[in-house]
Design a protein around this nucleic acid. Structure first.
Lengths: 341, 341
DNA sequence: CTGTTAGCGCTTTCAG
DNA sequence: CTGAAAGCGCTAACAG
């Protein structure tokens, strides 16, 4: 199938001629925006079905100014977390009759971020759901986008973007709940394995932990399994006493558990470990990972919903960007603290 | 951010006026398709940068007939396997300066499939990468799409689509290799947990297994963990003797292992289990899952590559849709067969 | 209930 | 090296 042998699809004009009416009438027969004679409508309908005619998207967009496409900027389509956001966004976009254009901001190349922004400026998309994986490289660019088209942040709230709606989980409460769970088990010496520095999720989860353990040691990681392992290794070498680890996501928690096992420490008998997210893996590792579950797909859905509301002009009043509730899921990786750390 | 307060972006005409030239010249200054005076070009360039001007996608598409968008039809964005295909496709599309429009065919609703096809007919996309999750609901529709735009199948080969390139793993060889591995361990009574009936991957993996164990019992599943567990349960209840399970993907293998454990059977001492895919989970379960690894991201890359070649008209000679090699990864879930089954 | 006209923003002849 | 003009396919005013 080479590109040039493609027969051109029928145009609205051609349908109109075949039906013996003007393109205007065909247009209205399709949109229903003004009455069309029953018999005429029938004739048009028949021709449309027969040829599988669908109005050309570019022509439509040029005229109406709307592409009926929603954009999604996301760090990594293959990551458990981001893939679920994408799923939620796709679901709602489709339900509300919009297509989804996905743009990856993978890695640290700022040019990829620019490509996402370009989708707005070329008017390929009517709005953008933006999920940050690191601190946004180009805050000014993001701000300019928000002036031109509906922008919604998903998962990560970004400071300095006033009036930009953000959909996120209640990270602080979740982390605090996890911390209280540990305290109830008698833990005093808790170490926090934090996520990417500067991200609001990291900041909020740290705040939640600190609300319960004000003097907890906080080590900066990056939400990857490897960093959980590395930080735990450092911790063990340092000789710092601790009985529990509060990891800011499940991958880091799993990395920590692996490193602890290598050091001959048992979970939860010697050290309790808590994660965050409740990824599929969490219930598969041995022991099952106690974690804070967030509804990631729902986050995607909400974000898309807010974006589409704005696109459709419904949102004069900015929606109350409420935080999504999270839920502590207790499994086997947490237990009573040892008496003597 | 309501939709109506958006200031319209500059048009090429406006850039032209500001530069004191015609739109034609601006167009050529951007595309480089004909020489532009050095000084003029500089002036234009400056204005473009200053305003962050990017040519409107719909205007361009209407004129050139190309949207510079690639479509991807996929069953579930959040599934490990499909998410990786999406990642590969996105990577290549981006590298070759195309956007990616994702369209989910989730569930069995045939209308969603139609929406994917519509992307072609509205000319929103220049080509489509299609990944089937079940037997395609509308083969005729797919065939018609192939006549109109470059179509490439990824992962699942579909019969009856002559001349449509397909990128897939070498399922038969992989399954045969897994089977030989079991035979080398002394297994004779092997049960195959097959995937979705009718899919070529299922058929080919079954053929690979049968090449080594011609009389193996084959039970039809659906590639989901639950079906692996259910089929294994049935198997145990039936009293059929067996020493090894050849699951056609890792999720089913994991379901099987769980069910075996519930029945008090040890893996691999009592029963050996092999999967297919090498999903992340495979190395996390206990024992580690012996499986056939496929390079799913690469599959996505290749599919996108072939589609873009066709779009750009390079592909007069259809590419040799070679099968991607797979690799047996031996972990702890396989061992020597018990003497007396 | 229907048609005519104009023009969205761009690229591409064709003409200098 | 540059411009004028045409037109891609559609919809929305403005007539009837």
């Amino acid at each position: 199938m080479t590109a040039n042998d493609a027969p051109r699809p029928w145009t609205m004009q051609q349908i109109a001629e075949a039906a013996g009416v003007s393109a205007t009438t065909v247009s209205h027969a399709i949109s229903g925006k003004r009455p069309v004679g029953a018999e005429t409508a029938r004739r048009i309908r028949r021709l449309i079905d027969e040829h599988g005619y669908v109005p050309d998207a570019a022509g439509r967009r040029l005229r109406t100014g709307r592409s009926r496409m929603l954009g999604l900027a996301i760090p990594d389509l293959a990551a458990w977390f981001f893939a679920r956001i994408a799923k939620g966004v796709e679901e709602v976009a489709d339900a509300r009759d919009h297509g989804l254009i996905v743009c990856s901001t993978a890695g640290s190349d700022p040019r990829r971020e620019q490509r996402c922004f370009e989708l707005v400026r070329t008017r390929a998309i009517d709005g953008l759901v933006y999920t940050a994986g690191r601190r946004p490289a180009d805050l000014g660019g993001l701000r300019r986008i928000a002036e031109v088209a509906p922008l919604v942040l998903a998962d990560e709230v970004i400071d300095g973007l006033d009036g930009v709606p953000a959909i996120a989980s209640d990270n602080e409460t979740g982390a605090a709940e996890a911390a209280r769970h540990l305290r109830a088990l008698g833990h005093e010496r808790v170490v926090v394995l934090a996520g990417v520095p500067g991200l609001r999720s990291t900041i909020d989860r740290t705040a939640g932990a600190r609300a319960v353990f004000p003097h907890a040691l906080v080590l900066a990681g990056d939400f990857e399994q490897e960093s959980g392992a590395r930080l735990t290794g450092d911790l063990l070498e340092s000789g710092t006493p601790f009985t529990a680890i509060l990891a800011q996501n499940d991958l880091m928690a799993i990395g920590a558990i692996r490193r602890l096992a290598e050091a001959g420490l048992r979970v939860p008998e010697d050290v309790s470990v808590v994660g965050f997210d409740d990824i599929g893996l969490a219930s598969f590792v041995e022991p099952g990972l106690t974690t804070v579950r967030q509804d990631v797909v729902e986050m995607g859905r909400r974000a898309a919903s807010v974006a589409l509301d704005a696109i459709e002009g419904a949102g004069s009043a900015a929606p109350p960007a409420a935080l999504l509730p999270v839920e502590l899921v207790v499994r086997g990786s947490t237990g009573r603290a040892r008496e003597r750390p």
